Amino acid sequence: MPEVIFPGPAGRLEGRYHSQPGKDAPIAIILHPHPQFGGTMNNRVVHRIHYTFHEMGFNVLRFNFRGVGRSQGEYDQGVGELSDAAAALDYLQSMNQNAKHCWVAGFSFGAWIGMQLLMRRPEITGFVSVSPPANMYDFSFLAPCPNSGLIINGAADRVAPPEDTHALVEKLHDQKGITITHEELENADHFFKNDYLDGMIAKVDAYVRRRLTENTR
């Protein structure tokens, strides 16, 4: 049952959900890019991240923010979209009450929303932030960042310049008790076009698998 409709703060939300046969599989929610610039849950980066988590044994949900696809409502400057993400996580948790680990992954605008969700939901144990737009949005709410995670970007990103991502990573590195892993793909742009998507996905896969192994020791 990959296609799902679930209640959100502004009406129904449309998603894709892929489950595992086990009862205690970890869960992950995947957040898409900016709704006003063509971002949807079927974005190629979001789609690949979704299936990468599923192949690692996660129950995974990606969904359209309000006003995108069949999701009801209108774009709400990130405020409503954060509420949508919280509702999606509630829905995912309701179906997986025995999950021991909970992850959030977001791409671009979705990375910004994902990091805010991380701050509000202590049950989230790890995050993946792909091409975070640190030049466009304020990430100062990460004070302190509550959990370890991966930040990954392209060195040729003209949408969210690498220097802004570096500054964000350095700020988070100054905080004790967490480990921010930073990966940067040489020559890759904001969208990891051409062959760079495979390289980015490989780094995400390796990072999450390592964290899962550490958590089961």
Score class of each variant (00 low, 15 high):
Glu3Gly: 00
Pro7Tyr: 02
Gly11Tyr: 04
Leu13Gly: 00
Glu14Trp: 12
Glu14Ile: 04
Gly15Thr: 13
Gly15Cys: 13
Arg16Tyr: 11
Arg16Thr: 00
Tyr17Gly: 00
Gln20Phe: 09
Gln20Arg: 06
Gln20Lys: 05
Pro21Asn: 06
Gly22Lys: 00
Ala28Asp: 06
His32Val: 02
His32Tyr: 13
Phe37Pro: 06
Phe37Ile: 12
Gly39Gln: 08
Met41Ala: 09
Asn43Leu: 03
Ile49Pro: 00
His50Lys: 10
Phe53Cys: 14
Phe53Val: 08
His54Glu: 13
Met56Trp: 12
Val60Tyr: 12
Gly67Met: 09
Arg70Ala: 14
Ser71Tyr: 07
Gln72Trp: 05
Gln72Tyr: 01
Gln72Cys: 05
Gly73Trp: 03
Tyr75Ser: 06
Gln77Tyr: 14
Gly78Phe: 04
Gly80His: 09
Glu81Ser: 10
Ser83Lys: 09
Ser83Asp: 06
Asp84Ile: 14
Ala85Ser: 06
Ala85Ile: 10
Ala87Arg: 13
Ala87Val: 02
Leu89Lys: 10
Leu89Ala: 06
Leu89His: 02
Asp90His: 01
Gln93Asp: 02
Ser94Arg: 01
Asn96Arg: 04
Gln97Val: 11
Ala99Gly: 03
Lys100Gly: 07
His101Trp: 08
Ala105Leu: 07
Ala105Phe: 04
Gly106Arg: 03
Gly110Cys: 03
Ile113Leu: 09
Gly114Ser: 06
Gln116Trp: 02
Leu117Cys: 07
Leu118Pro: 05
Met119Cys: 07
Arg121Ser: 11
Arg121Gly: 00
Pro122Ala: 13
Glu123Ile: 01
Gly126Tyr: 05
Gly126Ser: 08
Ser129Asp: 12
Ser129Met: 10
Ser129Ala: 15
Val130Lys: 04
Ser131Gly: 15
Pro132Met: 04
Pro133Ile: 15
Ala134Met: 05
Ala134Trp: 15
Asp138Pro: 08
Phe139Trp: 07
Phe141Val: 09
Ser148Gln: 11
Gly149Ser: 14
Gly149Asn: 06
Gly149Arg: 14
Leu150Tyr: 05
Gly154His: 00
Ala156Trp: 03
Ala156Glu: 01
Arg158Glu: 15
Val159Lys: 04
Pro161Gly: 00
Glu163Pro: 05
His166Cys: 12
His166Asp: 15
Ala167Met: 02
Glu170Gly: 12
Lys171Cys: 07
Lys171Trp: 09
His173Arg: 15
Asp174Leu: 11
Gln175Leu: 13
Gly177His: 08
Ile178Leu: 10
Ile178Val: 13
Thr181Trp: 02
Thr181Ala: 06
His182Trp: 08
Glu183His: 07
Glu186Lys: 15
Glu186Pro: 00
Asn187Tyr: 10
His190Glu: 01
His190Asp: 06
Phe191Trp: 09
Phe191Lys: 11
Phe192Trp: 02
Phe192Asn: 00
Asn194Cys: 01
Asn194Ile: 02
Leu197Arg: 01
Ile201Asp: 03
Ala202Met: 02
Lys203Trp: 01
Asp205Thr: 09
Asp205Val: 01
Val208Gln: 09
Arg210Ile: 01
Arg210Gln: 14
Arg211Asn: 10
Leu212Asp: 07
Leu212Thr: 01
Asn215Phe: 12
Asn215His: 06
Arg217Ala: 10
